[in-house]
Simulated scan of single mutants.
Amino acid sequence: MPLEESYTTEQIAQILKVSKLTVYDLIKKGKLPAYRVGRQMRVDASDLEKYKNKEKGIPLPEQTSGAVTNANLGQSSVRSIIISGQDNSLDLLTKYIERESAQFRPLRSYVGSLESLISMYKGEADIVSTHLFDGDTGEYNIPYIRRILVSNSFIVVNLICRNAGFYVAKGNPKNIRDFHDLLRSDVKIINREKGSGARILLDEKLRGAGISREQIRGYGDVETSHLGVAGVVSKQYADVGVGIEKVAHFVGLDFVPLTKERYDLVLLKTEANHPLITAILNILQSSNLKEELQSIGYDVSCTGKIIYEQ
C-alpha cells in the first residue's frame, strides 16, 4: 500500500497562508491531527483536506462505528502544549515532559524570543523561552515580558545561562574585540533575523554605543539560527556574527565573549496552567535534568530558579 503524503508544519503554514504558530495552535486545539517524526510534526494530506472542507462548511463523511477516536484511546484528558524557542535545551526539556508527565503532549515551535512572547500574548503558546537584552536597564527578559504580557499574570523561571558573543575565524585574524570594531571598513557581519535574542542584543549594544546600523557592513544579511551564522563565518563569507559559545566550539570558530545571558521560560499563571507550572518546576529542579544540561555545556547554576512573578 503506498504511503499517504504528509506535510511539515512549515508546509502547512505555506499552504494555508498563515504563520507556523497558527498551525501549532490548530494542532494544539485538536482541529488539525498531527504526529511526531523525530523533531518534526507532520500532518497527513487527508487530515488537512478534512480541515479545509470543514472550514468551508462541507459536511464530513459520517464516521463508521469502527472508527478510532481520541476518546477511545483515552487521550481526551491529555493536553497539547506548545513550547516555543530555538535552543537545544528546549528539546531536552520536551523529552523530560514526555517521559515524566502523562498529562501533557508537548509540541515544539522553533521561533525567536520576541515572536514567542507575542504568540503567548495571543494565546498561541504555552511555554516560551526568552533571552532578550534590554539596553536601558542592562537586564535580561523581564522588561520585555512585562511590556508584552501586559494585564497577564505570569511566572518566569530560568532554564539555563550561557555566554553570548562574537563568532570569529580561528586566531581572530582581524582582532575583533567589541562592537566598535564593527565600524571598520574591513569587517563584515552576518546578522540574525528580527525578533531573535541575538539580533536584539546587537541592536541594543549598538544603540548604547551610539552606533548607527547603517554604518555596519553586512547588517542586512540574515541567517535564522546560531548555527547558520557560525556557518557563514566559518566559510569566510563574513568576518563576525553574534551567537552563543557552544555553537562556536561545534563549528570550529573562535569565540569572543561579550555577556552572560539568562535563558528563561515564561508561563502564564492561570488556573488551567497550575498543573503545568508544577510539572515544569519539578522537572527543572530535578538533578537528572541539570546533570544532563551541564554535560552538554550549559550553565545550570540558576536552573529551576523562579526569577520573577506577576
Rank of each mutant, 00 (worst) to 15 (best):
G231R: 11
V43R: 03
L114N: 06
S286T: 08
L284E: 08
D181P: 12
L182N: 01
G228C: 03
Q215C: 06
G85A: 05
A238M: 06
K17N: 15
R79Q: 08
S65E: 09
V233T: 10
L258W: 06
K29D: 14
D264V: 04
I142K: 05
Q310L: 12
L32Y: 07
L48W: 02
A230F: 07
L48S: 00
G197I: 11
T22A: 06
I190H: 07
T8S: 13
F166M: 06
T64Q: 06
I296V: 14
M41A: 14
L3F: 12
D264R: 02
V43D: 10
A209H: 05
L90R: 07
S185N: 09
E62C: 06
P61A: 11
Q75N: 14
Y35G: 10
G171C: 14
V23T: 04
S101E: 13
R105D: 13
G228L: 07
V300K: 00
D221L: 14
K52Y: 11
G241S: 04
Y263K: 01
E204F: 05
V229R: 00
G85F: 03
Y263R: 04
I160F: 14
Y219W: 13
V150L: 13
I127R: 05
S19H: 13
L182I: 14
S185D: 15
V240G: 01
R105P: 05
Q86D: 09
D186P: 06
T94G: 11
I211Q: 05
E100Q: 15
L293K: 03
K29E: 14
G123Y: 09
E291K: 10
A272K: 10
I190E: 13
K170A: 13
L289F: 15
M120C: 10
L60M: 11
Q63S: 10
V229S: 01
E291F: 11
E261F: 02
D47M: 08
L253D: 02
N158V: 12
I127Q: 05
L284N: 06
G228H: 06
R108W: 00
Y144A: 00
L227I: 09
L73W: 15
D181E: 12
L32N: 12
S196R: 04
L48T: 00
V222C: 12
K174T: 05
I82C: 13
G138C: 04
E291L: 08
G228D: 08
R262W: 12
E309G: 03
K122I: 13
R36E: 15
P33A: 09
G243P: 02
G165E: 07
Y140D: 09
R192I: 03
A209W: 03
P59D: 08
E98P: 04
R105Y: 15
I200G: 03
G220R: 13
K17Q: 13
L293R: 07
I127C: 09
N88G: 07
S109F: 07
Y96S: 08
T94D: 03
T8V: 00
R217T: 01
Y51C: 10
Y35D: 04
R184S: 11
D134A: 11
